[in-house]
Amino acid sequence: MSYDERTVVTRVERLTLRDLRLWVRKGWVKPMEGMAGPLFDEVDVARICLLRDLKTDMSISADALPLVLSLIDRLNQTRRELQCLQRALEGQPDTVQQQIIARYAALHEDPE
Protein backbone atom coordinates (compact mmCIF):
# COMPACT_ATOMS: atom_id res chain seq x y z
CA MET A 1 0.00 0.00 0.00
CA SER A 2 1.38 3.42 -0.84
CA TYR A 3 0.12 6.95 -0.31
CA ASP A 4 0.75 10.21 -2.14
CA GLU A 5 1.76 13.46 -0.43
CA ARG A 6 -1.76 14.74 0.10
CA THR A 7 -3.00 11.48 1.61
CA VAL A 8 -0.08 11.44 4.04
CA VAL A 9 -0.79 15.01 5.15
CA THR A 10 -4.44 14.18 5.84
CA ARG A 11 -3.58 10.88 7.56
CA VAL A 12 -0.91 12.24 9.87
CA GLU A 13 -2.33 14.81 12.28
CA ARG A 14 -0.49 18.08 12.75
CA LEU A 15 1.67 17.52 9.68
CA THR A 16 2.17 20.25 7.08
CA LEU A 17 2.98 19.66 3.43
CA ARG A 18 5.86 22.08 3.85
CA ASP A 19 7.49 19.97 6.57
CA LEU A 20 6.92 16.76 4.63
CA ARG A 21 8.60 18.16 1.52
CA LEU A 22 11.48 19.53 3.57
CA TRP A 23 12.07 16.13 5.21
CA VAL A 24 12.09 14.39 1.83
CA ARG A 25 14.49 17.02 0.45
CA LYS A 26 16.80 16.50 3.42
CA GLY A 27 16.71 12.75 2.83
CA TRP A 28 15.15 12.00 6.25
CA VAL A 29 12.21 10.35 4.53
CA LYS A 30 12.88 8.35 1.38
CA PRO A 31 9.66 7.71 -0.56
CA MET A 32 9.45 5.80 -3.82
CA GLU A 33 9.27 7.82 -7.00
CA GLY A 34 5.86 7.54 -8.64
CA MET A 35 4.94 8.99 -11.99
CA ALA A 36 2.88 11.72 -10.29
CA GLY A 37 5.21 12.47 -7.38
CA PRO A 38 6.55 10.67 -4.32
CA LEU A 39 4.77 7.62 -2.86
CA PHE A 40 5.01 6.72 0.83
CA ASP A 41 4.56 3.26 2.37
CA GLU A 42 3.80 2.33 6.02
CA VAL A 43 7.47 2.48 6.98
CA ASP A 44 7.65 6.05 5.70
CA VAL A 45 4.38 7.06 7.40
CA ALA A 46 5.54 5.69 10.79
CA ARG A 47 8.81 7.54 10.33
CA ILE A 48 6.96 10.74 9.43
CA CYS A 49 4.98 10.40 12.70
CA LEU A 50 8.26 10.03 14.58
CA LEU A 51 9.73 13.13 12.91
CA ARG A 52 6.58 15.07 13.75
CA ASP A 53 6.81 13.94 17.41
CA LEU A 54 10.44 14.96 17.56
CA LYS A 55 9.74 18.35 16.04
CA THR A 56 6.38 19.22 17.59
CA ASP A 57 6.10 17.33 20.87
CA MET A 58 9.72 17.38 21.90
CA SER A 59 10.55 20.68 20.18
CA ILE A 60 13.84 19.35 18.86
CA SER A 61 15.37 22.16 16.82
CA ALA A 62 15.99 21.76 13.10
CA ASP A 63 19.73 21.74 13.79
CA ALA A 64 19.56 18.92 16.31
CA LEU A 65 16.99 16.81 14.42
CA PRO A 66 19.44 15.06 12.04
CA LEU A 67 21.62 14.12 15.00
CA VAL A 68 18.72 12.58 16.93
CA LEU A 69 17.50 10.84 13.80
CA SER A 70 20.89 9.33 13.01
CA LEU A 71 21.11 7.99 16.57
CA ILE A 72 17.67 6.43 16.28
CA ASP A 73 18.60 4.91 12.92
CA ARG A 74 21.78 3.50 14.39
CA LEU A 75 19.82 2.07 17.33
CA ASN A 76 17.36 0.36 14.99
CA GLN A 77 20.12 -0.98 12.81
CA THR A 78 21.92 -2.42 15.82
CA ARG A 79 18.69 -3.96 17.06
CA ARG A 80 18.14 -5.63 13.71
CA GLU A 81 21.70 -6.92 13.63
CA LEU A 82 21.29 -8.34 17.12
CA GLN A 83 18.05 -10.03 16.09
CA CYS A 84 19.84 -11.45 13.09
CA LEU A 85 22.66 -12.69 15.28
CA GLN A 86 20.13 -14.18 17.68
CA ARG A 87 18.45 -16.07 14.84
CA ALA A 88 21.83 -17.33 13.70
CA LEU A 89 22.51 -18.57 17.22
CA GLU A 90 19.12 -20.24 17.49
CA GLY A 91 20.11 -22.35 14.51
CA GLN A 92 23.10 -23.77 16.40
CA PRO A 93 23.15 -27.01 18.40
CA ASP A 94 22.21 -26.75 22.09
CA THR A 95 25.76 -27.28 23.32
CA VAL A 96 27.06 -24.41 21.21
CA GLN A 97 24.24 -22.18 22.45
CA GLN A 98 25.00 -23.08 26.06
CA GLN A 99 28.69 -22.28 25.59
CA ILE A 100 27.90 -18.89 24.05
CA ILE A 101 25.42 -18.06 26.83
CA ALA A 102 27.97 -19.02 29.48
CA ARG A 103 30.70 -16.94 27.85
CA TYR A 104 28.33 -14.03 27.41
CA ALA A 105 27.33 -14.16 31.07
CA ALA A 106 30.98 -14.29 32.12
CA LEU A 107 31.78 -11.20 30.02
CA HIS A 108 28.85 -9.41 31.59
CA GLU A 109 30.25 -10.05 35.02
CA ASP A 110 33.77 -9.08 34.12
CA PRO A 111 34.28 -7.28 30.79
CA GLU A 112 38.07 -7.60 31.11
Partner: peptide
Protein backbone atom coordinates in the same frame (compact mmCIF):
# COMPACT_ATOMS: atom_id res chain seq x y z
CA UNK B 1 -0.59 3.68 17.13
CA UNK B 2 2.20 2.07 15.12
CA UNK B 3 5.59 3.37 16.14
CA UNK B 4 8.49 3.63 13.77
CA UNK B 5 10.65 1.05 15.50
CA UNK B 6 7.96 -1.56 14.84
CA UNK B 7 8.75 -1.14 11.15
CA UNK B 8 12.43 -0.41 11.52
CA UNK B 9 13.17 -4.09 12.13
CA UNK B 10 11.89 -5.02 8.70
CA UNK B 11 14.14 -5.60 5.75
CA UNK B 12 12.52 -2.82 3.75
CA UNK B 13 13.40 -0.27 6.45
CA UNK B 14 17.07 -0.76 5.62
CA UNK B 15 16.86 2.28 3.37
CA UNK B 16 17.11 4.27 6.61
CA UNK B 17 20.24 2.58 7.91
CA UNK B 18 23.07 5.01 8.48
CA UNK B 19 25.04 5.06 5.27
CA UNK B 20 22.19 3.41 3.36
CA UNK B 21 22.52 4.11 -0.34
CA UNK B 22 26.22 3.73 0.11
CA UNK B 23 25.59 0.27 1.49
CA UNK B 24 24.53 -0.65 5.00
CA UNK B 25 26.23 -3.99 4.64
CA UNK B 26 29.52 -2.45 5.66
CA UNK B 27 28.40 -1.85 9.22
CA UNK B 28 26.97 -5.31 9.42
Amino acid sequence: RDFYHQYAGQQRARRYDPGAGTGGAEDF
